[in-house]
């Protein structure tokens, strides 16, 4: 881990981030309730506990930068500014969804905002991000590409083949990609210790001559400081970089992961002490920028916005039957 830089984020921005984190948390909790009520089908992977990583990283991007995500993609999509109503409608399988209801939870896209999607095969999207980064330089731009994936993807061949290509192409300044390892400690129910011969995942990028570091993924300010420095370096050099953000999911792997026999309540409780919302709230209270009244206001605002998303999703029409055959081929 490198030395922390002084906090330069204005209080107004911190307050905005606080609102965003609270909103994302309430949104994710709502998706779990909607899943249990049968409104959301398929798989549902929420990012409760991990929100600071996408928020910190995506806050460091320019509007014309791009990113790829794993299937745990709701928060990334929300913090990038996609209408929460469209996100919820996608989860509900409705025409008003980000992908007309044809992708679902694992495949949220918003290409107009540089969101090149969530992908359902562990590690499978990492080569895409490396190629996308190459394309950005080939086209003569200084745009960068972020690629988010979990600790589980670190053991997939796709990661290693893609990282080797990134290392190679980066030597020519042709691969401005940041690998963001969202290390939430478990690939489904298997801990990093039980899955990776080297538990410090960032170090594995040494094998591909890719500079790397670890950061605290629960502190959004710290994440942002690292992200800003790394993104600007990658933008300048066209070389890849890897950041392993240490984080934790408080929910199960997916909606079906109810009993979580692979971890103890004490462990979850320890991490809850470092809940990213709690940490930011404490920082804001200490700065005198947040009090009980303001917290209640944020909570009410977030809840209202979540319910608006639900109402929109409920009332959005189902995709018509002709959508079945659309988007298989281009013109």
């Amino acid at each position: 881990m490198q030395h922390a830089e002084p906090v330069t984020v204005p209080v107004d921005t911190l307050l905005e981030w606080y609102r965003t984190l609270v909103f994302c948390r309430r949104f994710e909790e709502q998706t779990e309730r909607s899943f249990r009520r049968g409104k959301i089908g398929g798989y549902l992977h929420v990012a409760i506990g991990q929100e600071a990583v996408p928020l910190g990283f995506l806050s460091a991007l320019r509007a014309d930068d791009v990113f790829f995500v794993s299937y745990r993609d709701h928060v990334h999509t929300l913090v990038r500014g996609t209408d929460p109503r469209a996100v919820m409608a996608e989860l509900y399988g409705k025409l008003g969804g980000t992908c007309k209801g044809k992708g679902g939870s694992m495949h949220l896209f918003d290409v107009a905002r540089g969101n090149y999607g969530g992908y359902g095969i562990v590690g499978g999207h990492i080569p895409l991000a490396v190629g996308a980064a190459y394309a950005l330089r080939y086209q003569g731009t200084d745009r960068v590409c972020l690629c988010f994936f979990g600790d589980g993807a670190m053991n997939s061949g796709a990661l290693h083949e893609a990282a080797n290509l990134a290392g190679l192409w980066g030597r020519e300044g042709l691969c401005p990609v940041v690998f963001v390892v969202e290390n939430n400690q478990y690939g489904m129910g298997t801990s990093v210790e039980r899955a990776s011969a080297v538990v410090e995942l960032a170090r594995r990028f040494d094998a591909y001559d890719i500079p790397n570091e670890r950061c605290d993924g629960m502190d959004v300010v710290g994440v942002y400081e690292v992200a800003r420095r790394v993104v600007e370096e990658v933008r300048r050099t066209g070389r890849p970089y890897a950041v392993e953000a240490l984080t934790y999911r408080f929910s199960g792997h997916g909606a079906a992961d109810l009993f979580q026999p692979y971890r103890s309540k004490q462990e979850v409780e320890r991490w809850r002490q470092r809940d990213p919302i709690l940490l930011l709230e404490r920082r804001l209270r200490e700065a005198g920028a947040l009090d009980d009244h303001a917290v209640r206001e944020v909570e009410a605002w977030a809840e209202k916005r979540v319910q608006e998303a639900v109402s929109f999703a409920e009332s959005s029409p189902e995709p018509p039957p002709e959508e079945l055959y659309r988007d298989v081929y281009g013109a």
């Binding site: 969804g97 980000t98 992908c99 007309k100 209801g101 044809k102 992708g103 679902g104 495949h107 896209f109 918003d110 290409v111 090149y116 999607g117 659309r326 988007d327 298989v328 081929y329 281009g330």
Partner: peptide, 8 residues
């Protein structure tokens, strides 16, 4: 193309 609803 399909699961992005035709976005890519």
């Amino acid at each position: 193309r399909y699961f992005s609803g035709g976005q890519v």
